[in-house]
Design a protein around this nucleic acid. Structure first.
Lengths: 340, 340
DNA sequence: GCCGCGAATGTAAACGTTTACATTTCTGAA
DNA sequence: TTCAGAAATGTAAACGTTTACATTCGCGGC
């Protein structure tokens, strides 16, 4: 049987209140008794029952994370940033993943409620009504990469639009007139924003726009492989391809190579995300860097602020800046630029 | 204020015991009263306080996962398998990551205890003594990819040894005499086992063994890039390279390409893990497949079995088989074999 | 008409903490 | 000597459930 606070109190010859005070390092307790209690704790190898503590304090020191289908290193990275930041403040992570429809998410929301002090939600399939209906209204919330409007919620998004805009503009500025895009999953907000950035960049740069240049994809290597082959069939052929993420860019590269089309000489290629491998393929990939683990960290910071400073905390939307990373695959960099 | 079971009881005009019985679908309650209660629950948008329930039931329906530094898609995959399996049985995941030394792990263990019904530990830095000292002895445990001996614990490991053995043997059988290895992180158990498999395969196949063929690496692209360049300097030059994981294999490929060394014609190259991108690079990568998400799923299954059937559950070590995946980079496959 | 029994429901104790409030003890000033 | 007030500690209520046990009620058998 696990020992309880009572056992410790008995052993130390004090009341449970005193034990509790020692445990919670309230400083009103005498040095001698403190030592007495600390010894008893050690001897009995006592550790507090968390459920009881949670009930009594009515907080859990835990934040919930609701993820869509876990896939690829994006989520490892996000979680890494979250865990680090949370731990610094003695908070912990309660995770539920692979939610791909509304019903599942709502179930998960209910499961979370009561187990966590706040919630970070990453899911394209969520809306305000559904949130309000399934969560205690006082529960602090941060929406990460969700599509929301208004100031009802805290929200953080990647600046997909600007990232895509910049990388496509970069292609256009260096002379490309026919730039194709391999799109991401249709309903995905990241995908939509990247597409929007692509279109606007074309327009601003006066490059050729055509619906035919927009090839469907779903962020997987497989979809992109097929898409790239399809692009090669087009006449006149595009001179550049913007893949909506790096995994797809790499798969496209492979497809082009099977057809003996060289990159960047015959076709320029750029991606999005800057996953670690991007700098280690040949040609190295021009892409858009996103501070993924920073994104997770920021979300946790905002949430903890909301939890701890309930009164002063004001909700707002934030945007995570991206950075253009020029390497070889776009064919634009001068050799010098590449030395670093 | 959130409503409690008392509010529901009052509204429905019954006692809290009855409400509780309805909530926990005990079937001793009359159909009429059940409806009464269910209505009250709905009207008040009541949901039970989990902390109170946990305290009362003394279980949490949560399993804890202790991870080392989250890195790359390996962990996403493991978590994906875990989450899926857990959810099927209404269990949830409490996660703590980035533990890189003993002190941190022990702290995390204490945090977990009381919050979870069982624990899955993935960490090379752990030993039996430390576990026993920091955890209630009754807490069910599964050690994943840890280095443990004896039958004191449930443990699951990837069959790194056999995987490495087979892929290296494959190279040897196809005529390679000088096979280099780019090693993984020194203290890492996976790395050690893969190295052992490599050595034994060389010996069995009668290939040349030399300490000089064992180049240090740490599973990152960067370390491998350097290692590959180093290998090219060797005289006589190895004719094949076994990289201890796919990320390193891809980086090595890139390094070779900068030196105009073609794969597989001049040097054969193989990896380990079969990450998705491996089949989409050129040449596609011969590697060893590990069912990563299955690994996570299996760990959860074992743990839930230990939790739910305490008596009958018997501890044991299990090994996850691997599968040799032959593609282009080793230069061994006949064209026909590659069609699939 | 009484008893026993099962079904339905209620009462209250338990789970292990935290913490407001009460009590004791001691110190030093009047 | 007395007393105010501070410091240290104790007592007990609260947190919101679950569940063993007690109670009530209706019914059939005698």
């Amino acid at each position: 049987m696990r020992s309880t606070i009572k056992d410790v109190a008995k052993r130390a010859g004090v009341s449970i209140a005193t034990v509790s005070r020692v445990l919670n390092s309230s400083n009103v307790v005498n040095e001698e008794t403190r030592l007495l209690v600390e010894n008893a704790v050690r001897e009995l190898r006592y550790s507090p029952n968390i459920a009881a503590r949670n009930l009594s304090r009515s907080r859990t020191e835990t934040i919930g994370i609701l993820l869509p289908d876990l896939y690829g290193e994006f989520f490892s990275e996000v979680l890494r940033g979250m865990d680090r930041t949370a731990r610094k403040q003695n908070y912990h992570l309660f995770i539920s993943s692979s939610h791909n429809n509304k019903v599942e998410i709502e179930a998960a929301l209910r499961v979370m409620s009561g187990r966590v002090d706040g919630l970070i939600i990453m899911s394209p399939h969520i809306d305000a009504t559904s949130l309000n209906a399934n969560l205690p209204s006082a529960l602090p919330l941060v929406l990460l990469n969700c599509h929301v409007e208004g100031d009802e919620f805290d929200a953080i998004n990647i600046d997909n639009y600007r990232g895509a805009f910049e990388v496509v503009k970069h292609l256009a500025v260096h002379g490309h007139k026919r730039i194709a895009i391999i799109k991401g999953t249709e309903k995905n907000i990241d995908a939509q924003e990247r597409l929007r950035g692509y279109r606007d960049a074309l327009e601003e740069a006066g490059a050729e726009y055509s619906k035919a240049f927009e090839i469907p994809g779903d962020f997987t290597e497989q979809s992109s492989y097929k898409a790239a082959l399809q692009i090669l069939q087009m006449k006149p052929r595009p001179t550049a391809i913007f893949a909506s993420n790096d995994a797809m860019a790499i798969a496209a590269l492979s497809a082009l190579r099977t057809q003996r089309v060289s990159v960047p000489e015959e076709i320029a290629l750029v991606g999005f995300d800057d996953i670690p491998i991007s700098s280690y393929i040949k040609p190295s990939l021009t892409t858009v860097r996103v501070g993924i683990s920073d994104l997770g960290a920021l979300a946790v910071e905002r949430l903890l602020n909301a939890i701890q400073k309930k009164k002063e905390h004001t909700k707002r939307h934030m945007v995570m800046r991206t950075e253009l990373v020029v390497r070889e695959s776009c064919g634009c960099a001068s050799p010098t630029e590449l030395i670093t």
